[in-house]
């Protein structure tokens, strides 16, 4: 098992190197002069020269690449032009918000998706199945940003139940502990400061999580359904029924444990995708995470920030996929005990 993990990690190195290289050349070889693009048409020759020197753009490409690689290996992603802050610092501040949103969206999508998928499989070719699968099809065909606006229109504007955006009401400002507001809320609850923070954070998470979670929900429901149908056909399900095991136990214990194996992989991949897919959702809900920050960096033509952001998210994505693979082999006895 350890050998397997090490092997997978080693196989990952060329991919990671490729990712860094691609990110570098994407920016370096972009049409036009990056310094000019960043500073705009009216920048003076002086300013341009200064920025080029700052970014190392005046050196030959090969040398630029070597320098970039060296910096990245030391965990240095450079400075944002806009804020002059270290990009790693910018990311660190925003990561908890993004993870918190992606996480709650994934939880919502997984629970609802699995429940609906199992129901559809059990009631195959009934209205339960048809409506779930039609809903799932609508889910993957829907523009997320539009769904977000419609949700705001209904639940924030018309009904006034939920906030339109942000992570927390301004009046409840507090000094974050972990920067995961739900977690902070729980900690404060135990410190005897009441549940206000927790519930306010939760309220702010509902709409963005639904918007962000809709596509994964649809995909998880479809996967669960087809996986469950496949498993229910298996001989061992018949064995369990023939042995008089109660039907609910056959379905929710015997069959589901098998059916979830492929679903867990899908959930993991979706979680990875949500970290980046949050660009639209974070922008609409004014969610102070990495997605919104990348969007602003793009609008501001802050290329070092864009470069750092995409590199970070991609590496994160690759690592999550690896973690999912490893998790799969840990929970599947057929692989684990080989």
């Amino acid at each position: 098992m350890l050998k397997f993990v090490v092997k997978r990690l080693l196989l990952l190195l060329p991919t990671l190197l490729g990712v860094v290289t691609l990110v570098f050349f994407m920016i370096a070889l972009s049409p036009g002069d990056p310094a000019r693009v960043m500073l705009g048409e009216r920048a003076s020759a002086e300013q341009l020269k200064k920025l080029r020197a700052e970014l190392g753009l005046d050196k030959p490409l090969g040398q630029q690449y070597a320098l970039y690689l060296g910096r990245v290996l030391h965990g240095d992603l450079g400075k944002s032009i806009l804020t002059q802050q270290k990009i790693t610092e910018e990311l660190r501040q925003r990561l908890p918000a993004t993870i918190e949103l992606a996480f709650t969206a994934t939880i919502f999508a997984s629970i609802a998706g699995i429940v609906l998928g199992v129901a559809a499989a059990r009631k195959r070719n009934t209205w339960v199945d048809y409506s779930t699968m039609t809903g799932a099809l609508f889910g993957v065909s829907m523009p997320v940003f539009w769904l977000a606006l419609v949700l705001i229109m209904i639940f924030s504007v018309a009904l006034d139940w939920l906030p339109t955006g942000g992570r927390m009401d301004v009046r409840l400002y507090f000094t974050p502990i972990t920067n995961f507001f739900l977690l902070d809320g729980i900690i404060l609850l135990f410190k005897g400061e009441g549940g206000k923070i927790f519930f306010n954070a939760l309220k702010h998470l509902i709409l963005p999580s639904i918007a962000l979670g809709t596509i994964p929900l649809a995909i998880i429901a479809r996967t669960t359904r087809s996986s469950m149908l496949e498993v229910l056909k298996q001989d061992y399900v018949k064995t369990a029924r023939a042995a008089g095991v109660p039907e609910w136990k056959v379905v929710y214990h015997y069959a589901l444990k098998n059916a979830l194996l492929p679903v867990i992989t899908v959930i993991g991949i979706q979680f990875g995708l949500l970290l980046s897919g949050a660009i639209l959702t974070e922008t609409i809900f004014a969610w102070p995470g990495i997605g919104k920050w990348i969007y602003h960096s793009i609008s501001a033509r802050d290329f070092p920030a864009v470069q750092g952001g995409i590199l970070f998210i991609s590496v994160f994505f690759v690592l999550i996929n690896l973690a999912v693979d490893l998790l799969y082999s840990v929970i599947n006895p057929r692989i684990r005990l080989q």
Binding site: P14, G18, L273, S276, I279, I294, I298, I310, S314
Partner: peptide, 23 residues
């Protein structure tokens, strides 16, 4: 295939957005 794999290491939406941002 190596190049394809590396491209697939980028989440689709992010890749699209960044390419437009550059172009």
């Amino acid at each position: 295939m190596r190049v394809i794999d590396i491209m697939l290491a980028f989440p689709y939406i992010l890749l699209t957005i960044v390419i437009v941002a550059i172009l």
